[in-house]
Simulated assay, not measured.
Amino acid sequence: MSNNISFNLVLFGLAVFISVSCESKKPTKSKALNDQPKTIEKPVENEDLALLKMRCYACHQVSSKSHDEIIAPPLAAVKRRYLRSFPEREAFINAIVNWTMDPKEKNALMYGAVKKFKVMPYQSFDKSEMSVIAGYIYDNDLEEPEWFEEHEAEMHRGKSEN
C-alpha cells in the first residue's frame, strides 16, 4: 500500500508541476505595456499586388529604361489589349487565366508581342492565384514604365492590335 501512496503522490506532484509550468508560459504584460495606446499596423501593400509582383514582374517589369530592354510586354499593355476584347470583369479574368494557364500562339491576342517576344513560356501557375492577379489587373491602375505612353502612341497610332 505504501508503494501505491508513493505512486499517487508522484503523479499528483507531476500534475501540479505540469499545471504550474503551463500557467507560467502564458504571456504576461506589464502595466506600462497595457497603458500604451494600441496601434494597428497597415500592410505595406495590398496582398493581391504583392502576388502580382511576385508572379509577374520578373518578366513584365516596369523598371526598364526602354522598350528595347524588356522581355515581355508591360502589364499595362496587356490590360489595354485584353480590355478591348473582354471589357466585362469576369470575361477579362477568364481570358487572362486561360492564357496564363496554357499560352499558345494560336490563342494569343497580342500578335505584336508574340512576334517580338515569342509566346509566353509555360509557367506552373496556380489557377486561383492567377484569378486573383487578373482581378487585380482589371480593378486597378497599373504601374507603367516611363517610356510606355510614348511607345504606345508611336506604335499603335490609329492601329488596332487585333
Rank of each mutant, 00 (worst) to 15 (best):
S2H: 11
N4M: 13
N4E: 15
I5R: 07
I5T: 06
S6E: 14
F7D: 12
L9D: 08
V10N: 05
I18L: 11
V20K: 00
K25L: 08
L33D: 11
Q36D: 02
K38F: 13
T39H: 10
I40Q: 02
I40D: 00
P43H: 10
E47W: 15
D48W: 13
D48F: 12
L52V: 03
K53E: 07
M54I: 03
M54R: 12
Y57E: 12
A58H: 11
C59F: 04
Q61L: 02
S64A: 03
I70G: 07
P73Y: 02
P74L: 00
L75K: 02
R80G: 02
R84W: 13
P87M: 10
R89L: 01
E90D: 14
I93T: 11
I96A: 03
W99T: 04
M101R: 00
D102R: 14
K106G: 00
A108G: 09
Y111F: 11
V114L: 10
F117K: 04
K118Y: 09
M120Q: 10
M120G: 10
M120Y: 14
Q123I: 00
S128M: 09
E129S: 05
E129D: 10
A134L: 04
A134H: 03
D139R: 13
D139K: 08
E146G: 02
W147E: 09
F148G: 13
E149H: 03
E150K: 15
H151Y: 15
N162H: 15
